[in-house]
Simulated assay, not measured.
Amino acid sequence: MKSLIKVGIASSCIIMSAFVYAEEKQSGDMAADIGAVGIPVLAGSIALFKEDYDGFWMFAKGATYTLAATQVLKYTVREERPNGEDDLSFPSGHSSSAFQGASYLQFRYGWEYGLPAYIGAGLVGYSRVENEHHYWRDVIAGAVLATTIQYLVTDKYIDSNQVMIMPVINQDHVGIAASFSF
């Protein structure tokens, strides 16, 4: 219970910081900021809520590698943004962040978790293009980069409340063995 409270407090602080940062921006920019922070925070919080510490480590590795790869590409490619603001358009950092969280949820826990997060990540990418901060290729590159990295570092979650049934065949016996966890 204490870890759940800590996760809630940390999540709230991070999301609130996105609101403060986005205060002076267009509404689409604020939504993108919240999604880029909120989706990964939600993904990490779900892992902690499930007490899936191995999964949280996979999430953290994916987030770290995605952030590093995104920044290296931004400063290597130096593509100008559609609005002329600066030359750090490729790939979209907001999209890579949002898709990293969504990809983690899908790869670790399945489509029930991943699909809503992917919809949110898609909206983050759409708003970045709509508000002329990125081209579509920047958003797609961020999504592909994050998804690929997260795929490489994430194992499927195996719920401990499972039933395993398997055949047993040896020289003396033929039968079925069952294992129940709860």
Rank of each mutant, 00 (worst) to 15 (best):
M1K: 15
K2L: 14
S3E: 12
L4D: 09
G8H: 01
I9V: 15
A10H: 05
S11I: 04
C13G: 09
I14Y: 13
A18D: 06
A18H: 12
K25P: 00
I34S: 00
G44E: 01
G44Y: 12
L48M: 14
E51R: 15
D54M: 11
A60F: 02
T64L: 15
T64H: 04
T66V: 05
L67A: 07
V77N: 01
R78P: 00
E79Y: 11
P82Y: 00
L88H: 08
P91Q: 10
S92A: 10
S92Y: 13
H94N: 09
S96L: 12
S96A: 13
A98D: 01
Q100W: 10
S103R: 13
S103D: 04
R108T: 06
G110H: 04
G110Q: 03
E112V: 07
A117F: 07
L123M: 13
V124D: 00
Y126M: 08
V129N: 03
V129W: 07
V129P: 02
N131Y: 15
E132M: 14
E132H: 15
H134Y: 11
Y135V: 01
Y135W: 09
W136E: 04
R137W: 00
V139H: 08
T147K: 11
Q150L: 11
Y151T: 03
V153T: 02
D155M: 03
K156C: 02
Y157G: 01
S160Y: 05
N161L: 03
Q162F: 12
M164L: 13
M164V: 11
M166W: 12
I169W: 14
H173E: 05
V174N: 06
A177G: 00
A178C: 02
A178F: 05
F182A: 06
